[in-house]
Amino acid sequence: MRGPGVIQVIALGLISAGIYALFALGVVLVYRGTKVLTFAGGEIGTAALYVTAFLVTDHGLSWGVGALIAVAVAAAAGALFEFALVRRSVDADPVVTSILTVALAATILAIELNHFGGSPKQLKPPVHGGVNVDGLIVSPVQIAAIVVAALLGFGLQAFLRRTDFGLAILAAADDPTATRLVGVRVSRVRMTLWAGSFALAAIAALLVEPTVGVISPGYASRLYLGGLAAAVIGGLDSLPGAVWGATVLGLVQAFVIRYLRVDVGGLDFDVTLVLLLVALLGRSLLPQLRRRLSPPREAVA
């Protein structure tokens, strides 16, 4: 078979997977802590790119400093979002808060469209060149994305399980009142979660962008969908699960695009949709299947 070989397809799949995983970790982090699904990560990521472009392209800062400031701004935005809106919502229901994140995304998107809709912004990559993998030039930034995602996926898990603050996050999710009573400031825990989630979204967007170089409104949202899907495929409340979900999604996308020879655009979205539906079907049917396969009940005399 001509064209890129299997190794290159795998490499492409893992590159996407790294980005999806970073977004997915931000989703899972907030979900584990508050049972809220956040839909704002994509726009937070895009906004972080605009901030970086403003600092680097327009004002000549180095890429590293610009990116660092952008991540800090994203984290601050997360904390502010929690402090100013989530905490003060009259309806503290997770579903309402989830819609609140949609509203935040819509607001940021509207501002992007209004200010930069006509003219795409340029942002130069921090480093040039890269490693040759089976004919594919993989940039160091892409490798960094994969490594950071894997480290965070398993490192954050250890952080949640092994540290006091991590346990406080888990406890606050299970029973906020009881957690408050043992002296944990639940509101501060939550603020940290939102800040962390938004920072992760910014990091994800910053690590994908150098290979594209041009930013347009809503740019990271399409990738964020991959993160949301990866989180759901991974079970939504598991950090390592999110990494595995992202890996499956990235690889299946790469293989389908490479080997399914149809002349249709946006195949990656079709794959995302189908994988999501398969994962949900599996989750709803597995318990039934397990019950059916388990040994029959003992006959009662």
């Binding site: 699904l37 989830s98 399409r222 969908l225 949301l228 899907a229 979205f269 079709d270 949709l273 999501l276």
Partner: peptide, 11 residues
């Protein structure tokens, strides 16, 4: 459903 329908929107 919210996640799935975003996927539907893009697909």
């Amino acid at each position: 459903l919210a996640v799935v329908t975003i996927a539907v929107a893009y697909a």
